[in-house]
Design a protein around this nucleic acid. Structure first.
Length: 480
RNA sequence: GGCUCCUUCGUCUAGUGGUCUAGGACGUCUGGUUCUCAUCCAGAAAAUCGCGGGUUCGACUCCCGCAGGAGUCACCA
């Protein structure tokens, strides 16, 4: 496969969600893998469903995931315009060919009449095919009249890159509408014209188009066009039930996950591998690896259920991977907007230190908000937390106070406040007090954070700093 | 209803006639890593391969039925 030209052709009716973003990812991977091009085309022929701002939402999603397109809105290209609503002349020129060759006709039949035919068929329990009601002497086309394709029903075969060899009989081929009465083309016609004009070699879309394919095949033939590679993408299923994941099932927009602290790397990785694998046991893929390894013939033929838990696991893996491979700064650069409010007044350097000891506990970046608060603001002292702690409840108040005082004096004697010295001091305290780690460490940890958990004690104290650590311990000692 | 597609652990999947007493990952459970939470490590439970027939020395893998699920039958995409 060389220089594949693929496209992502959404209609601007809202945001891109988990259930439909694969039809952007896979075309992108194929285009990059083959050194071809990916086109973004906005299919806005349905003026009633058009949503203002949806195009921007779509572009934002693609950019976030790192799916750069080579031609499309904003950047333009040699095959524009890339909004179908601006290509009406093109569709009319193409439909004229069909009209002239007798493969299409203007249909004057009023809508009520068509409904009647349809009802008739359903009463007789026979399938409704418009071609059986084809008007005998169609008039010249004039505005306000739809144009229909004149079907050429017969056995048709084709190969779907995912589904394999397919065939369909004449019973599914009909006189479909090419141009609506408002002069706009239907999807069925517009996508064929555009794909041909734009040189698209791979048509990748959801399986819901599989049953319309015989009609598309007939149009390709009538127009003398070469068939592109047809690729049906199985649905992503909702977490519950067996339905395809859609907005009605609460499918979140892809970018909503960005706001929730999911990394683009994790999102892309998870989505690409939902219903696809390269046959090895690898689970973690960079975008580059996906480009290299992706192949159409390993796309699953059945639908895959969306599992947010695994996405979150993968996100945690990616957070650690970025920190470990690219360093604290690289991860820190992704954390803007995820810190607790109180963190704003602290220097970047301090936040990076906090991040460095907490990052391996993050599932999403937004966990930062609750997990790091005590590094930026003194926690509220609640002695009950100490007295009811499972390791500390057997100690008397006097013992607790004594232990705190010893800790304070030991820690304040540290000359150079660093991880190692802190650990040494902590170990000495353990030996001198004869307490178990569970008791001593829990007490100090709670006194200093009042959080349900924290990183290793010496690291926490080190980042908090001498002054803050001792001040908090003193405050708690006084409160007991 | 017609037509089409799909069917391996709870979930994502490996598997293209014998190496499968079915492998990996998420999730779950257990243990370990000086307290906690997480990471990490070790381990466990978890699929009679939708069901029923064939073909074959041998089938998750090939064939035929059936069932279940999904999609589609718009002047929506």
């Amino acid at each position: 496969m060389k220089n594949a030209i693929t496209r992502f052709a959404p209609s601007p009716t809202g945001y891109i969600h988990i259930g439909n973003v694969r039809s952007a990812i896979y075309p992108y991977l194929i285009a990059r893998q083959t050194g071809g091009k990916m086109i973004l085309r906005i299919e806005d022929t349905d003026r009633e469903r058009y949503v203002e701002g949806a195009t921007e939402l779509i572009e934002d999603t693609l950019k976030w995931l790192g799916l750069e397109w080579d031609e499309g809105p904003i950047i333009g290209g040699p095959n524009g315009p890339y909004f179908q609503s601006e290509r009406l002349d093109i569709y009319h020129a193409w439909v004229k060919k069909l009209l002239d060759s007798g493969r299409a006709y203007a249909d004057p039949t009023p809508a009520e009449k068509i409904d009647e035919y349809r009802r008739e068929c359903s009463e007789k329990k026979i399938p409704f095919l418009y071609r059986n009601y084809r008007p005998e002497n169609p008039p010249e086309w004039e505005p306000g009249m739809p144009i229909r394709f004149k079907a050429d029903p017969k056995e048709r075969e084709w190969v779907d890159a995912v589904m394999g060899e397919m065939k369909a009989g004449p019973e599914v081929q009909d006189d479909i509408i090419l141009i609506k009465k408002d002069g706009y083309p239907t999807y069925n016609f517009a996508h064929i014209v555009d794909d041909a004009e734009m040189g698209v070699t791979h048509v990748m879309r959801g399986v819901e188009y599989l049953s319309s394919t015989p009609n598309y095949l007939a149009i390709y033939e009538a127009l003398g066009l070469e068939r592109p590679v047809l690729v049906s993408l199985p649905h992503i299923l909702a977490p519950q039930g067996n339905k395809k994941l859609g907005k009605r099932d609460g499918a979140k927009s892809v970018t909503e996950y960005r706001d929730d602290g999911v990394l683009a790397e994790a999102m892309l990785n998870y989505l690409a591998c939902l219903g696809w694998n390269d046959g090895t046991e690898q689970e973690m893929y960079t975008k580059q690896e996906l480009i290299e390894r992706f192949s159409l013939d390993r796309i699953q033929t059945s639908g895959a259920r969306y599992d947010e838990t695994k996405l979150l696991w993968m996100n945690g893996q990616w957070i650690r991977r970025i920190f470990d491979e690219q360093g604290a700064h690289a991860l820190y650069d992704r954390t803007a907007g995820f810190w607790p409010e109180e963190a704003e007044t602290y220097p970047e350097e301090y936040r990076i230190k906090v991040l460095s000891i907490i990052y391996d506990r993050l599932k999403t970046l937004s966990d930062l908000r609750e997990m790091t608060r005590y590094f930026f603001v003194d926690p509220e002292i609640n002695t009950d937390t100490i007295k009811t702690n499972k390791f500390l409840k057997k100690l008397s108040e006097a013992e607790l106070e004594d232990l705190l005082k010893k800790s304070i004096s030991k820690l304040s004697a540290i000359e150079d406040w660093n991880e190692d010295n802190l650990q040494n001091a902590l170990n000495e305290l353990l030996a001198e007090s004869g307490k178990k780690p569970a008791e001593l460490f829990s007490l100090i940890r709670i006194a200093v954070s009042f959080a349900p958990f924290s990183p290793a004690l010496n690291l926490t104290l080190n980042v908090l700093g001498r002054e803050t650590s001792l001040a908090r311990l003193n405050a708690v000692a006084a409160a007991i």
